[in-house]
Nucleic acid binder design. Structure first.
Lengths: 202, 202
DNA sequence: CTGTAAAGATAGTAATCAATTACTATCTTT
DNA sequence: AAAGATAGTAATTGATTACTATCTTTACAG
């Protein structure tokens, strides 16, 4: 996908490298993506990669930073455009799901990072991301309670948990089936049950 | 944990190897568990492992088979002992969660397997497992509908999805926090929302 | 047009890991 | 207790991988 152009300015090369890693992660186990594979996909030799990153971890770190920034941006945009807290939750959900459909490699990289036992820098970025993500969910849920849209007794932490869990589940099933397209089919149906679980009982 | 005894009969050695891999997976990235590490943990040399398994993949395969069999057994037992379909779903959920708390390495191995792009044998075992798991969920949901416990219009596939997704989410959060104990605290709260989402609206 | 700094190519190194092989220790059976 | 079977050892091999040192090409400013 990403064009194979030589002699890019350093900042562009770093951006292309990030794109390439995400692209490769959609096709193979992210942990087994070699610097040689990244270079080949860009049309460079392996050594050239190290002109732009001090080591391999720095590449992954750049990927994680891009993902965190981009995902939060898209999700915020979707939530802002929604007319009510509950609608915002659904919009956020669908925006997240669509982001994953567009970049199927990303959840795989995320999962892979979480596997590492030690506290790597990429893992810390994921932690910060999910923390900020949960904060947004908590805020929307409280607004929904004030709004009477959501059950006043709703356990907001558990609800935020379930929200993220739904996405996890969708991703896992699509990994199992090897079919990313299924997600867009299943996502609204799953959200419907969630909605029933959190909304106020009239 | 597993005792370091030499000259075990082949079948026992294979069983100990499986235990050891699950043990190691709780401590480090499953993909980076080397045959040397497995051997060392058992008190053997690296080469000895290959006396009992033709290659490394066969070890993982044995692990997956053990997990699939054991999980389905525990989950079935829990469901059978429950007084109603909805209670069975909850019992199944808690049995699954407790299984993971006891063996935190297992979900990590599972995730790791799903990452592989090609159709490996371990991946196929996971597919079979989740298929059988979903069948059980579908059956319980239909029973619950007949029983009037569950909403007659409930989308059973989406509900099964969400059920598995909840567990995924709990596991992922515990991986993030590096604290398996949190699961037992959060699991019932998350299930409560799920219950609200699927039960019949009286 | 040309000098130069940045980007990339080439050709390595050291470390790691799965797998193999020739040999040895231990158990089991009769 | 001898003989055969089973389990484990020690050393090695070939492949892979992140990373590096040195040389070459390109883009572009003046």
């Amino acid at each position: 996908m990403t064009p194979q152009v030589k002699y890019l300015p350093a900042s562009e090369r770093r951006a292309v490298t990030v794109d390439t890693v995400i692209e490769l992660a959609a096709e193979q186990n992210p942990d087994s993506i070699t610097t040689a594979a990244i270079a080949q996909r860009m049309g460079l030799t392996q050594g050239a990669v190290f002109r732009h990153f001090p080591n391999k971890d720095a590449i992954l770190q750049a990927v994680m930073e891009w993902v965190a920034e981009r995902l939060l941006f898209l999700v915020d945009k979707a939530a802002r455009a929604a007319p009510s807290p509950l609608a915002a939750l659904e919009a956020m959900f669908m925006a997240h799901v669509n982001f994953i459909i567009k970049h199927p490699g990303i959840p795989r990289i995320l999962f892979g990072e979480l596997q590492h036992a030690d506290e790597t820098i990429p893992k810390r970025i994921v932690q910060t991301l999910t923390h900020q993500y949960r904060e947004r969910l908590h805020r929307l849920i409280e607004k929904g309670k004030a709004n009477k849209e959501l059950d006043a007794n709703l356990d907001r932490e558990a609800a935020a948990f379930l929200f993220i869990g739904m996405i996890q589940g969708l991703v896992m099933q699509s990994l199992l089936a090897g079919d990313v397209g299924r997600i867009s089919h299943d996502a609204p149906r799953v959200f419907a049950i969630f909605r029933q679980g959190i909304r106020s009982t009239r």
